[in-house]
């Protein structure tokens, strides 16, 4: 049971990393990316292949996974730079499916639908499974913590302000002197890097990847995590990721307790529960558990009164009698 909980914490951490990445693209810059599982897959495959086929150290593999996925992000962003909303969503969805189908058919490189097994994990051989799990949890936690700090800096910076401006009105942002296309490409690259790193972390943890892991459902889980936590908000991304993993896993235990439901029906019921959770969430807390807040900039104390001093004094002295 302990091992199971640790494994869930690791996967929640990986979800959180993905949600942080998507938050840059979708939450801040407002670009609907339905292809995030494709970036996740690129990072996983790059790191797995580099460590397995070239014998590179795991850390190098993971870093390369992040960098290469960022490069793919740049390519996708350049192709889609003029697309918005639904159009961008459908193209990115197509991108992710393309990655999955290419991975299924490029037998010489990815071993097709059989997948790649025996991917190295840090100290996997020399540790007990429990110790390995804990070590990996520590690594994932550290990476999520660092990414969170960096993402917070981005959000609070003038760079983040430009992204949020683009989210509201691209044309006015251009008039404000911002090179909109360049900012979009940068946001995509940064978000994709986090997604690729998450993919690499996943590959080295489970030691096995195959195309059928990288299905659109995973994209939706991350979208759900971000919506539940609060779009545009890094704290919310992490809280949402943990909430989604908790929801997914707890239903696994609850469903078998429902009498007269077969295993297959149970699986369907679980999807139903998750969908219901999303609808309830959007109905009652449309801005998520932790809504995005505007950064407050202190107003200098030497505020010139906008009402004449006499009037201000008289309002101050006014005492309601009721």
């Amino acid at each position: 049971m302990e091992n199971y909980l640790i494994a869930m914490a690791v996967s929640a951490g990986i979800y959180a990393l993905m949600a942080l990445g998507v938050n840059v693209i979708w939450g801040l810059a407002g670009m609907v990316n339905l292809g995030l599982v494709g970036f996740f897959a690129v990072g996983a495959y790059v790191s797995a292949l580099l460590t397995l086929k070239l014998g590179l150290p795991i850390a190098v593999g993971m870093a390369s996974g992040a960098v290469l996925t960022a490069a793919v992000g740049v390519a996708v962003a350049l192709v889609t730079v003029r697309l918005r909303g639904d159009y961008l969503a459908i193209v990115t969805l197509g991108f992710a499916e393309t990655i999955r189908i290419v991975a299924s058919n490029t037998l010489w490189l990815t071993n097709g639908t059989d997948g790649i097994s025996g991917i190295a994990g840090p100290y996997r051989g020399s540790l007990s499974p429990a110790a390995f799990n804990l070590t990996y949890l520590a690594i994932v936690t550290a990476i999520v913590a660092v990414t969170f700090v960096l993402a917070e800096r981005l959000r609070a910076s003038p760079f983040g302000r430009v992204l949020r401006a683009i989210r509201d009105d691209e044309q006015v942002a251009a008039i404000a002197g911002k090179h909109v296309a360049l900012f979009k490409v940068k946001a995509f690259a940064i978000g994709a890097a986090a997604l690729g790193l998450a993919g690499a972390l996943y590959a080295h943890y489970t030691s096995y990847i195959a195309p059928d892991i990288f299905v659109p459902l995973l994209t939706l889980y991350i979208k759900l995590a971000l919506l539940a936590g609060g779009l545009g908000n890094n704290r919310g991304a992490i809280v949402g990721a943990f909430a989604v993993v908790f929801l997914l896993e707890s239903t696994r235990f609850v469903i078998p307790l429902v009498p007269g439901v077969s295993a297959v029906q149970g699986a369907a019921l679980r999807e139903l529960l998750i969908a219901t959770a999303l609808i309830v969430m959007l109905r009652y807390r449309p801005r998520g558990l932790i809504p995005e807040r505007l950064p407050r900039i202190p107003v200098p104390p030497s505020t010139p009164p906008s009402v004449p001093p006499a009037a201000a004094a008289s309002t101050k002295n006014y005492q309601p009698t009721a």
Binding site: P158, R164, R167, D168, A173, L294, P295, I297
Partner: peptide, 13 residues
């Protein structure tokens, strides 16, 4: 303009 930015941020942008 930018409805989801503060007035301050609208100016700073």
């Amino acid at each position: 303009g930018f409805p989801r930015l503060s007035v301050y941020e609208n100016l700073l942008l």
